[in-house]
């Protein structure tokens, strides 16, 4: 009764601790949490199980979060979360951010990536043009350069002009996020 039956072996723990930014205690805590989230005890957490977390389900960005986390086993769970550890290196945090925004996974955050994230935020409540303008401004603010629209790119609508934003690379992220206190923003206490 009430035993903290943990099937996590010491070896596993040391291995996971070595590959993440969490301490041993935190890993154990996370494991307990993982078991709770894994309602059907399958060893992986799938989308529907994540959506049982009401706070998460409330967040407009949840589809993207779930996309990243869908079907994780414990090791992957920890790896994804390790961007949020207290002692996580800056690199890891930026990596996570970048992956989050790189929706199509092509290694660069393009306008369409940001657009889809922004769409999640506002749903269908804003029209396409507005969204595109806002996203473009965001990209510019973030330091994306512009490049002339090549002939082959077809007809963009009038207001997008003859330019498009160059996709942001990981280096852009590193550069721009230099002064952001990522440690403060991307950190969770376990």
């Amino acid at each position: 009764m009430g035993a903290n039956a943990s099937t996590l072996l010491d070896d596993d723990i040391t291995e996971i601790v070595a590959s993440s930014s969490f301490s041993k205690e935190e890993i154990e805590q996370l494991y307990g949490r993982f078991q709770k989230l894994d309602r059907n005890g399958s060893g992986t957490i799938d989308a529907s199980e994540f959506l049982m977390i009401p706070e998460l389900a409330m967040n407009p960005l949840v589809p993207r979060v779930v996309q990243l986390f869908d079907g994780v086993n414990f090791k992957e769970f920890v790896r994804l979360l390790s961007a949020f550890g207290k002692s996580a290196p800056r690199e890891t945090r930026i990596d996570f951010l970048f992956r989050f925004y790189d929706v199509d996974g092509d290694g660069a955050v393009s306008e369409s990536d940001v657009c889809s994230i922004f769409r999640l935020l506002v749903g269908d409540n804003l029209d396409d043009t507005t969204v595109r303008r806002i996203v473009r401004q965001a990209m510019l603010d973030f330091g994306a350069g512009v490049e002339p629209l090549s002939e082959t790119d077809g007809n963009e609508s009038a207001d997008s002009g003859n330019f498009r934003c160059r996709p942001l690379t990981r280096e852009d992220f590193c550069r721009k996020l230099q002064q952001v206190e990522l440690d403060r923003i991307l950190q969770i206490s376990i």
């Binding site: 967040n59 407009p60 989050f100 925004y101 994230i117 973030f142 996020l177 923003i185 991307l186």
Partner: peptide
């Protein structure tokens, strides 16, 4: 951008 993600998470 960072904040938006932080919020998301």
């Amino acid at each position: 951008l960072g904040n938006a993600v932080a919020a998301a998470l």
